Amino acid sequence: MARAGLTAERLTLAGAELADEVGFDQVTVSALARRFDVTVASLYSHVRNSQDLRTRIALLALDEMAALAADAVAGRAGRDALTALANVYRDYAREHPGRYAAAQLRLAPETAAASAGGRHAQLTRAILRGYDLTEPDQTHAVRLLGSVFHGYVSLELGGGFEHSAPDTAQTWEWIMDALDALLRSRPAPPAAA
């Protein structure tokens, strides 16, 4: 029998904490059952399987990051908004490496459509309004920013910059300057004849 007080939400949060401690790849229903000192079978009334648990953790991480990003970019524009958004992802990854990894989980289309993943794209498009980009450049820019943010954070978390100068904070600022300059210099598309 499941220990009183166990819910899908409590298990999801405990799974997210476990992911931050041992890595997202190590999160399973069995590992969570050990954490609560219950049988694996007792958790199946709350989560279907390890994939369901991992999906729940991914959705939690996406929601947390979207809330942080919305707060960070509110009232900002241009480079200031760009840097605020980028810093949310970088800081979240440093503070919650397992959850950040979970946020990269490929979700089923119906799950993705109902998740906060769309909020991330909307927030990115909102900051891009300050750069006066039209389609398809705005979509290209959303993809560019996501790739740069995730790529840098992944390399940094993996220790890829540990033994080199300059300091990673300086490189991060350089990247923000470069992205801002690129987005500002993008020529407007030719007017339709």
Rank of each mutant, 00 (worst) to 15 (best):
D52T: 13
R76Q: 14
Y92Q: 07
A103K: 06
L32A: 00
E110V: 06
R94P: 00
F36D: 02
V27G: 00
P97T: 05
T55I: 03
R94D: 04
V40R: 15
Y100E: 04
A69G: 09
A69Q: 08
T111E: 14
V29N: 03
A67L: 05
H96V: 08
D25R: 10
L82C: 12
L82S: 10
D71Q: 05
V88Y: 05
R35G: 04
R54G: 04
E95A: 14
S30K: 14
A31S: 07
H46M: 09
E64P: 06
N49G: 04
R79I: 12
T55F: 06
E110D: 09
A108K: 03
D37C: 07
V88P: 03
H96F: 07
R56H: 14
L43H: 00
D25H: 07
L32H: 11
R90Q: 06
D63H: 10
A33H: 01
G98P: 06
M65C: 04
T55E: 11
R56F: 10
D25S: 12
D25I: 03
A93F: 08
L32K: 04
P109E: 11
L82Q: 14
D63G: 05
H96G: 01
A77E: 14
R34T: 11
A108F: 10
G78I: 09
E64F: 11
I57H: 09
A31M: 05
D80G: 08
L105A: 07
A77D: 14
A31N: 00
Y92S: 03
A112Q: 10
L105K: 07
G78Y: 11
A103S: 08
V29A: 08
V38G: 05
A101W: 14
A69M: 02
A74S: 06
R56P: 07
D52L: 12
A61S: 13
A31D: 05
L68C: 09
R48E: 12
A41C: 09
V27K: 00
R34P: 00
S50Y: 08
T39N: 12
A108Q: 15
D37Q: 12
N49Q: 09
P109H: 10
N49C: 12
A66G: 00
L32P: 04
E64S: 13
R79A: 15
V27W: 03
G98C: 01
A33V: 10
T83D: 15
V27M: 04
R99E: 13
V40Y: 14
A33F: 05
G78L: 12
D71S: 11
A93K: 03
E95C: 05
A41F: 07
T111Q: 10
R48H: 10
D71G: 08
A31C: 02
Q104G: 15
Q51D: 15
L59T: 13
F36M: 06
A81N: 04
D37M: 15
A70Q: 07
A81Y: 14
R34C: 06
H46S: 15
L105N: 07
G98V: 02
T83E: 13
A108N: 03
D37P: 01
A112F: 13
A41P: 00
V88E: 05
D25Q: 08
S30M: 12
L59W: 01
A112D: 09
R94V: 04
S45P: 00
L59P: 01
A102E: 05
R54Y: 09
S30L: 11
V29C: 00
L53M: 11
R99C: 02
D91R: 06
A103C: 06
T111P: 08
A81V: 01
S50Q: 11
R94T: 01
